[in-house]
Amino acid sequence: MKKMIASFLHKLLFAIFAVIILIATWHLIVVFGGFNHALFPPPLVVFATLRDMISSGEIFVHIRISLWRFFVGYSLAVFVGLVLGLIVGRVNFLSKLVEPLIQLIRPVAPVAWLPFIVLLFGIGDMPAIMVIFIAAFYPVLMSTITGSKKVDKRYMDVAKMFEIKQPQVFLKIILPAIFPYIANGMHMGLGTAWVFLVAGEMMGVRSGLGFLIMDSRNNMQPEVLLATICVIALLGLSLDKIITLFESRVNKHWGIGEGE
């Protein structure tokens, strides 16, 4: 435990140091690069703007709506990806049928669907949620399929030995057995989905962090734009940390990775 804290502090120290270097470099580039401060504001200006956005509460309105869209799209993706992945992974002919389709459709960037979704559903929350859904869906689906195919034979032997019947085999054995895969898919899906949140909100909505980026560009407010980027980065980092914690807990439990 002591060792873990020490290594955590060690890492944290380096991370803080790296951020300081980044901010300093930013400042130096703006000052010595001869940039117009109105177009490329130095860090202190951006932080002051961020403070104003926080104290006025404006930023929280956008954060709240973005997070709401994110969680709706993401939870839907996890649920659908998990159920489909389990079925496709365990039924051989389905996986032969579905996997070529996935390979065909997956390379299409989630934002490529955006105009189509807007045409179909109109503007509003739906397009942003759908883009997040598409972005998170594939990693969860692929992981679940892979996991379902790799359920440890020993677990299935135990199920046979105790004459466990369906649907109990699914619920008691297969689903928990592939939990580490699901957690990994959720982790990857979260990262991808967060990346596409901003893109998803650039069209058809008048709120959210992605909208704020586009809006500050239109209003020539680069300090707001950069402040929003800082918020997106910090929120993304926090979400990633939460899911990493969840994933490592699952892995520890399931006896993978750094168990004792």
């Binding site: 032997d157 928990p176 399931w254």
Partner: peptide, 12 residues
């Protein structure tokens, strides 16, 4: 019933 070499316990 069988007692397996690698225990075969369910980790969850």
């Amino acid at each position: 019933v069988t007692v397996f070499q690698g225990y075969g316990l369910l980790p969850w």
